[in-house]
Simulated scan of single mutants.
Amino acid sequence: MTNATPPPMRARSAGQAGKAPVAFGGIDKSAARRGTDKPDFDDIQQSDKFIRLRSRLKRFVFPMTLLFLCWYIGYVVLAAYAHDFMATPLLGNVNVGIVLGIAQFASTVVITTLYVRFADRRIDPQVAEIRNDVEDGTL
């Protein structure tokens, strides 16, 4: 049986017919090393714009998380300890427990939609502004 996979290219010596060494697969990795100027993440993190961005994000995320956790834990507690209430029929075989369970899924979709709208309107423009400041060298 023959080997269907060809062997990897071997690096040639630099002196061979004036050719530069060839990396594995013929890819010159020096091109990836050109941009050695990395942003100063400590300066970015301590900037006023970034602090305002984090504050604005926390003001949305923490209350929304707390609200959802209370809603979820409330549902679990009701399901565990309020059997009669959860079994109360609303419409045919549909009871309070089923409606609240479906509302869990609906609230997840609503919270996700609210977060995406919030991020698009409030967070992303601030992130773009910080990114532009870093690229321009003003931050």
Rank of each mutant, 00 (worst) to 15 (best):
D28N: 11
V134W: 08
A87Q: 07
Y81F: 13
L139C: 06
P7G: 11
S55P: 00
K29I: 14
D42M: 15
C70F: 13
R33E: 12
T88P: 00
I73Y: 08
M1S: 12
I123Y: 01
I73V: 15
N95K: 05
H83R: 12
G26Q: 01
Y115S: 08
L66M: 13
A14P: 09
R59T: 03
A128L: 10
M86P: 02
R117F: 14
A119V: 10
N95H: 07
Y72Q: 11
L67D: 11
A80V: 05
I73K: 02
D120H: 11
G137T: 09
V99N: 00
R33S: 08
F68L: 12
D28M: 02
V77Y: 05
P63H: 06
K58V: 07
R33C: 03
K19V: 10
T108W: 13
L90I: 10
S107Y: 13
G15L: 07
M64D: 10
Q104N: 04
P63R: 03
P6E: 08
Y115P: 06
L100I: 00
P63M: 04
G74H: 02
F62V: 12
T113R: 14
A31E: 09
G97N: 07
P89A: 05
A82H: 03
I111D: 08
A87F: 01
L67G: 15
T2Q: 11
Y115D: 08
V110T: 13
F118K: 03
A14E: 08
G74E: 02
A17N: 09
D42I: 15
W71E: 11
R52T: 01
L91Q: 07
A119W: 07
I98T: 03
A82C: 05
G97R: 07
T5E: 13
V96M: 01
T5N: 11
K49T: 02
T112P: 05
L57K: 06
V96T: 02
T112S: 15
L100V: 01
P89R: 05
P7C: 11
I123L: 07
L90W: 02
D48S: 08
T138K: 04
A14N: 07
L100Y: 01
L100G: 00
L78W: 01
H83N: 09
N132L: 11
Q16F: 14
R56S: 00
E135A: 14
L91D: 10
P21E: 10
R122N: 10
L114D: 09
M64G: 06
P89E: 04
R122S: 09
I123V: 09
G97V: 01
G15E: 08
L57A: 07
T2C: 07
F85P: 00
L66E: 10
M9G: 01
V110E: 06
I27P: 00
A14S: 09
K29P: 09
T113V: 15
G18V: 05
T65Y: 13
L90S: 06
R33D: 12
D37L: 14
